[in-house]
Amino acid sequence: MKASVRHELESVALEVRKDVVRMTGLSRSGHLRSCLSVVDIIVYLYWKVLRIRPEEPHWPERDRLVFSKNHACPALYAVLARRGFFEREELWNYRRLGAMLQGRPEHFRTPGVDVPGGSGGMGIGLANGLLMSARIDRLDRRVFCVMGDGELQMGSVWESAMQAASLGSGALTTFVDMNGIQTGGSVESIKRIEPVRKKFEAFGWRVMEVDGHDFRQLEKSVAWSLSGPGDSPSAVLAKTVPGKGITIAEKGLLGSPACPLDRDRMEQALRELESSSGVKGGGA
């Protein structure tokens, strides 16, 4: 990856992070740490991988991104707005009555959202159905699923993981945001999901582990996934830092993961992000 491309992606991700802080701050909603951990993964996919047309969101031949990590939807919304699916002004109405951007993604309300969301553990199954329909229509559709690591505690994930291997489609790539946290604390202290690599491998998946904040590694993982044997789904286990980019969020000093940012902390977080890039301005 060229340095210029990396810098471009880093700059986009920084702006997305700022929008996420503004959205969660203004709406007094939580899951900031989970939003910030997944930003780089979806920025990379939306800017460098997905074959999409923001001006034509329902373009039938587009690739699909199944965002299963529903509680982190501010990150998805900020990415979609910046990618041109809708006006950025919509972000400030997030979670308000009548808003396009609901508390959990609804594909019929929001351009760019490809699937219904809300209850977790359904991403891989939705992806399987999208791939089956493409197979019947002989379409070359690629489907990317983005899920959280806490979601791996849900049984339906493994029903669908088994189905994906039976389907034998190499066009499915699932990114697991391995940020290590869930609402009640650390994932491993609540209900052990490890060894995740062995679990996916045992279910017939190819697995690669990457740093979920390193665009060069994310690039390699997508190339690896799409150049595979063609009959195995791939899981990219992306190690991430919850709250990435904001010191108090990274250190877990915000209270519970569902705890919203107050006004002061929102301003402080924005200042920290702005200083990290040397870029000023860009207010809500």
Partner: peptide
């Protein structure tokens, strides 16, 4: 559960 989610994916795929 997987069958119903898969059905939703198929429906989204037309």
């Amino acid at each position: 559960q997987d069958m119903v989610i898969t059905a939703a994916g198929l429906s989204l795929g037309g």
